[in-house]
């Protein structure tokens, strides 16, 4: 009934095997081509670099700059910068032939490492050292304490805030100021010294902040510069800031009282005002020469009165 099919062919598996082989070859070819293309597309998945000592001649990773002996190099936390620059100016005014260079913020962490690498004479640190940093066995010289304030845009009607209200603000439980302006919380990046200062007193604050970071609830800025600009120009803005930076730079922002207690040397020292942080210098070894002179200067009476005038509390505390 089907003469065109050779019965031999029906019985013999040879042509069938050939067909299977053909299909297998096509599949293998397809898989091969796809695999080749994928490998070509993805490229290597091994790390395309090695870890270890960066070569001395690297143009990226410079070990040091030329530091003339009469110049003091300082770099570190942005919180230290306003006061340190003011002190540097005063130092240069009273010490002819001496120069102080205060670099833009590289953060407390950067300050520690720069000091450790001996790239600068002093690292500027605005938070307690971490365990890993303590292990570096650096010399740490605290020179000022600064109240951390809840700063608001000048348009905000409130003058005082309670701790509970502060928590409500950052948790988003309260959304408007008393005049109806929407509350805009400006957060610093995780690990910021002001946040750490508040968290040290209010453990709930840490959890609220973490949640806010995770939910991207608030705008996060990662420098004092960005924070002061945001607070100055954003209606209803609120954020943590240094009182000293506000006073010294005459910023158009308003520090709130906490539970009706204004930040002052007395209230901070008596711990009635809860939030503050210590500014310190770190160096690998006890300085000599110009850096040593600078260290002596900031412990002097002129520097301490300058600090007090600018809203800072000079350290070590008066006995």
């Amino acid at each position: 009934m089907s003469p065109e099919i050779d019965p031999e062919d029906v019985e013999s598996p040879a042509s069938l095997a050939a067909l299977w082989i053909g299909v297998a070859v096509i599949l293998a070819a397809a898989v091969g081509v796809a695999g080749f293309l994928l490998v070509d597309l993805i490229g290597t998945t091994r790390e395309p670099f090695t870890s270890g000592e960066v070569p001395r001649d690297s143009l990226l990773y410079l070990r040091s700059t030329t530091r003339p002996p009469e110049v003091v190099h300082l770099a570190g936390s942005g919180s230290n910068l306003p006061l340190t620059r003011a002190l540097a100016e005063a130092f240069q005014a009273t010490h002819p032939g001496r120069h102080v260079v205060v670099f833009d913020s590289i953060g407390s962490t950067g300050g520690v490492h720069a000091a450790y690498d001996d790239v600068v004479d002093f690292g500027l640190v605005s938070r307690p050292l971490r365990d890993s940093e303590l292990a570096l066995d650096l010399l740490r010289v605290p020179y000022a304490r600064v109240p951390v304030v809840v700063a608001v845009n000048l348009g905000v009607p409130e003058d005082s805030i309670s701790l509970a209200e502060l928590l409500d603000l950052y948790a988003g439980r309260r959304s408007r100021w008393s005049d109806g302006t929407p509350i805009v919380v400006i957060q610093r990046e995780p690990g910021d010294s002001s946040h750490q200062a508040v968290e040290a007193v209010l453990p709930e604050f840490a959890a609220i902040n973490q949640t806010a970071y995770r939910d991207a609830r608030w705008r996060v800025v990662d420098s004092d510069q960005a924070m002061q600009e945001a607070l100055s120009i954003t209606a209803g803005a609120v954020g943590l800031f240094d009182l000293g930076a506000i006073v010294l730079q005459r910023l158009p922002v308003k520090p709130l009282r906490i539970d009706d207690i204004a930040p002052s040397e007395a209230s901070v020292q008596s711990r009635r005002y809860p939030f503050s942080k210590d500014l310190a210098l770190v160096s690998v070894e006890p300085p000599v020469g110009a850096p040593a002179e600078f260290l002596r200067f900031i412990d002097g009476e002129q520097a301490r009165s300058l600090m007090r005038a600018s809203g800072y509390i000079p350290l070590p505390e008066d006995q």
Partner: peptide
Amino acid sequence: EIVDRSGVRVPLDDQPLGRRTGAEPLMWES
């Protein structure tokens, strides 16, 4: 990652950048 021209990684900080997934094979672009 920032890598020197010699092919050595520049250690920038101990802090993790983004989600570092360890053993996961990554596709690299430079």
